[in-house]
């Protein structure tokens, strides 16, 4: 480890980390919205759409994120859909993880007793109001640990965005290494940067989960 060198390039690594974090958060927002839509389609069994979505989800979950990323990066522009690499990256992350988020959210929805829906109907609440004010507040808290774990996975997996020229943490590190050849220093520092964020986050999730379980057991 060459600490002097590391100090000189640390601002650049932090810049890369910022890109990683922004891509992750954007991807997470997309995954949450898409995931909710998918979950709704599956819970309400919207005819035709439900079957199509189920097949798509299965296909996305069984193919590599990298292959999906390449597909979107190289194929979409052919059909007039032009985005910059960063947007494509965030979209690919969001799409990939929305399939996992949907499964978690679906579980949350199904855990809300049917009687809650019926009660809302009797009270004359609209479907959207029921969903927003009654069902979601009950469906979301139990799936927060799963969703946070997905967020952490997305943060770690966002390193593949480097493959479509995005200068996130891995790309920046790779770039610096190609001129300075300080592989050990750079790649170790990069690994530690991922670790320093992902590790406490996942330990935090586990604590929260344990507390949540304790509460339900006691109730």
């Amino acid at each position: 480890m060459d600490l002097d060198y590391l100090q000189s390039v640390f601002p650049e690594l932090l810049g890369g980390l910022r890109v990683t974090v922004v891509a992750t958060l954007l991807g997470a927002a997309i995954a949450l919205v898409l995931g909710l839509l998918i979950a709704c389609v599956q819970v309400f069994r919207v005819p035709v759409v439900h079957q199509v979505v189920t097949v798509l989800v299965l296909a996305i979950r069984n193919t590599p994120l990298l292959a999906q990323l390449f597909f979107m990066y190289y194929v979409l522009p052919r059909y007039g859909i032009r985005f910059d690499a960063f947007t494509i990256g965030a979209l690919a992350l969001g799409l990939h993880f929305s399939c996992y988020a949907a499964q978690a959210l679906k579980g949350g929805f199904l855990a809300v007793p049917k009687g809650q829906w019926e009660a809302c109907q009797v009270l004359g609440l609209g479907n959207l109001t029921t969903l927003r004010s009654v069902v979601l507040p009950q469906a979301l808290p139990p799936v927060i640990p799963t969703l946070t774990n997905l967020l952490i996975s997305m943060f770690k997996d966002s390193a593949v965005l480097y493959a479509i020229t995005i200068m996130e943490l891995l790309g920046t590190t790779r770039n610096l290494a190609s001129t300075s050849f300080q592989y050990t220093t750079l790649f170790t520092a990069m690994g530690l940067m991922y670790l320093v964020i992902a590790l406490p986050a996942s330990i935090g999730v586990r604590r929260y989960e344990r507390r949540l379980n304790d509460r339900t057991v006691r109730a």
Binding site: K156, A159, T173, F187, T188, G191, Y194, L199, S202
Partner: peptide, 23 residues
């Protein structure tokens, strides 16, 4: 377990592929 799950497979691949030869 925690170390391996704290970074992605890609980051680990790069570390092994580029750092081990230096060592």
């Amino acid at each position: 377990v925690e170390f391996l799950r704290g970074t992605s497979a890609l980051v680990q691949l790069f570390w092994v592929y580029f750092v081990l030869p230096e060592l």
